[in-house]
Design a protein around this nucleic acid. Structure first.
Lengths: 116, 116
DNA sequence: TTGTTGTTCAACCATATGGATGAATTAGAT
DNA sequence: ATCTAATTCATCCATATGGTTGAACAACAA
């Protein structure tokens, strides 16, 4: 048995999905301000069950947005910023594709004008 | 009847959700390179039904990531970059919260060292 | 008129998601 | 030994999501 844990989507998709839930973004914010925090501690700040929070954390972990340091019973959860850079990169790529088209379009118009 | 169209989530959540689907990101990329494009034209590039694409476009539209110009039968879909800035802003905010904590932590350590 | 084209709408389906609750596990405290 | 604390695991539930197919509709082409 090779521990199949969902078909493994591409990283960007996982990151965006993980970030698209308000509760999860709340958890990230909390972790950013508070530093490494225990699961129970995190759960205390939200109005949902500890279990629900535990699941959210797992999603974030899967996406690489948080890491876990397990000290016996206590799991210290810590935010990881690096993966978010992938979002930036995607945005930048999209933007440059878009800019490129406008540029070409502009060239074309300029040329036509010159041809007059 | 006040046209209730789902409880209206916050914009950032809608944008991230919309962007978290690979097909939808594909559509955005296509639109960025090709400019305003008809629904049928878009659908032709993807290996799913026209209807599925139509639904994806509606999600993108809802999130403000594309706009629609309807010329009689033809609907011209165009990418809208502005909303993506909200993602950047969220990321920047998170990052600054995080940086602030590290800064404080650093101050604390420096102070202790001075106290030695 | 009668097609044909470009789209959405309406069902329907399988699977994913976010939540709840209860049990299981493991270690520290009495 | 027992109790309590910190977590995850296992179920279960309702709703959302992404996809399909078939119908409806409006406008251009024959």
């Amino acid at each position: 048995m090779v521990e199949q844990q969902t078909p493994a989507e591409d990283p960007l998709t996982e990151i965006l999905k993980a970030a698209s839930d308000p509760t999860r973004r709340g958890i990230l914010t909390l972790l950013a301000q508070a530093g490494p925090t225990r699961v129970t501690e995190i759960a205390a700040r939200f109005d949902i069950s500890l279990n629900a929070v535990s699941k959210h954390i797992k999603v974030l972990e899967q996406a690489g947005l948080v890491s876990r340091r397990t000290l016996w019973r206590e799991h210290l959860i810590e935010v990881q910023m690096q993966p978010l850079v992938l979002i930036d990169q995607w945005f930048a790529a999209l933007r440059s594709i878009w800019a490129l088209r406008l540029e070409k379009l502009d060239d074309l118009l300029t040329k036509e004008q010159t041809d007059d």
